[in-house]
């Protein structure tokens, strides 16, 4: 029997967790941190030029940090989900730059179609890394080449006075459309919620090479959505009527925690 595949297997699991993969991830983390700080500093300098108050700047930063903690824990759980197949550093990198879990799971699965964890070779891993990286660059490439033109030709006109004042409603309307889509998504899951089975951090395939689908229809997301909406209404009442001003920066995070606690309580009661 040829011993090479066994050697390959040992090698691929070593590569997935190699020190230089962690070093790459750490380097990318530093790049993202440095870039974010650079943009934040420029924005802060500009805020002074525009005569914006320090309180306003603080409000933008503190509310965004408190808002982002919980979804970030959710994103980190995505790293754990994918680590079964790809180790920790590669999902860490992919979810730090451009990635989002649903993109990455799909990319890993399409690239690794038919490959199981036990049969994965170094060549497979390198190919998966290339596919996951290169397939997702399109939006950014479009921004590099066309964002400036798009802003000058379209957005400035939409928000400018030439549009007789509709501009101020336009983007609220766009965002309300986006929120409505998430409400529709929560409603849809009551009727049908088919998910692809994930094994070892990638979508699993059946014997005929098709994805394995499972229906988990549930009304939990709608209850969670409505619960955090009610919690937000309560906090908003405290802020506006009872003048509890410190809550302003944390009301969203606390409302999310309330919605998540409702989900946990429902889960304890056997409702998923």
């Amino acid at each position: 029997m040829n011993p090479v595949p066994r050697l390959f297997l040992a090698t691929v699991s070593e590569i997935k967790e190699a020190w230089w993969m962690y070093a790459l991830a750490a380097f990318i983390t530093l790049f993202i941190l440095a870039g974010s700080l650079f943009f934040a500093r420029n924005a802060y300098v500009q805020s002074k030029k525009l005569g914006m108050s320090k309180e306003l700047v603080k409000k933008a930063v503190v509310s965004s940090v408190s808002f982002s903690v919980l979804p970030s824990v959710g994103i980190f759980i995505g790293v754990i989900t994918m680590s079964g197949m790809l180790g920790i550093p590669l999902p860490w990198i992919r979810l730090s730059v451009v990635g989002a879990l649903h993109y990455e799971l799909l990319a890993a699965s399409v690239a690794a179609e038919g490959i199981t964890l036990a049969a994965m070779t170094t060549e497979n891993l390198v190919t998966i890394a290339f596919v996951m990286t290169l397939s997702i660059l399109w939006g950014g490439l479009f921004a590099i080449f066309f964002l400036k033109k798009y802003q000058t030709k379209v957005i400035s006109k939409a928000t400018g006075t030439g549009n007789k004042g509709f501009g101020k409603f336009l983007f609220d309307a766009v965002f309300i459309g986006m929120i409505s889509a998430y409400v529709g998504d929560a409603v849809a899951k009551i009727v049908k919620y088919e998910t692809r089975l994930v094994i070892d951090g990638a979508y699993a395939l059946d014997g005929t090479g098709n994805y394995i689908w499972e229906d988990h229809k549930t009304f939990v997301p709608l209850i969670v959505l409505l619960s955090s909406m009610v919690a937000m209404a309560f906090f908003d009442w405290l802020i506006r009527k009872k003048q509890v001003k410190w809550l302003e920066n944390f009301s969203l995070a606390l409302s999310m925690i309330f919605g998540m606690i409702v989900a946990v309580v429902l889960g304890i009661g056997g409702i998923y």
Partner: peptide
């Protein structure tokens, strides 16, 4: 369940603010 539905919780809380401020814009898309 808490982390499965974190995005639903996020849009519920934020949705309230936008819906309250723009009541006339909500009905049709919702």
């Amino acid at each position: 369940p808490a982390f499965n539905w974190v995005v639903s919780a996020l849009f519920g809380a934020l949705g309230y603010k936008y819906f309250r401020n723009n009541p006339k814009l909500i009905a049709v898309p919702l």
